[in-house]
Design a protein around this nucleic acid. Structure first.
Lengths: 102, 102
DNA sequence: CGAATAGTCAAGTTAAAACTTTAGTGTTTG
DNA sequence: CAAACACTAAAGTTTTAACTTGACTATTCG
């Protein structure tokens, strides 16, 4: 699964997208992050693992609490993908470059 | 389902994301769009409906052929969402505005 | 006009995600 | 040191989404 595939798949789920939105404001522990959702802590942990694998969230464990924060790599990759669709000339240049490489 | 939810859900699927990527280069008929995929034309039509509902693709039927092209509204909405995560100060200003409204 | 083309509709099947339960680890607190 | 806390792992269930089949409509071509 490519990076961009992981990112879009991760953000395709409403709960995960909401988590990212809430982490925009401030870092949160797993428990705090889980509070608003009507699901088990385990389920939240699973969502978190997906966000982390996509490079959208980083976490670090101190003692028994894991703190989650927004990560740049995922957002940056998303920005690049979007830029390529919004300025088609950039994509055409890429295609030209690929052609010249052959 | 909110606009941004529709957009991320739509792009969360690999086939639909590939469709959008191919439409970045040029508009295509449904049949041409379907060619690379090992699935029925019906399935492609279903994917297309989801992309259209998300504002990522527009289509128009002329005679018996439907031509599909990339649409701005979806990409713009995605850009706005992303901008809000990448510059947290913007989001904090929004929160301040909401607070002052009360 | 008949056949081929391009796409669509409704309904059912299959495959993938999300979520749960149960049980457990390491960490702090009283 | 026992109990509460914060999370984690494995395995099974349920829900959702993707995809198929078969039948059908409208358009173009010979």
């Amino acid at each position: 699964m490519s990076d961009i595939a992981k990112i879009f798949h991760a953000l395709g789920d409403p709960t995960r997208r909401d988590m990212v939105e809430r982490l925009t404001d401030a870092p949160l522990s797993v428990s705090k992050l889980a509070e608003p959702y009507a699901m088990s802590l385990t389920a939240v942990g699973q969502h978190l693992a997906i966000l982390e694998a996509a490079g959208l969230v980083t976490t670090q464990k101190t003692g028994r609490v894991r703190t989650c924060a927004l990560a740049q790599p995922g957002l940056d990759a998303l920005g690049e993908w979007l830029a390529a669709r919004r300025s088609p000339w950039a994509r055409k240049l890429d295609a030209l470059g690929d052609m010249l490489d052959e």
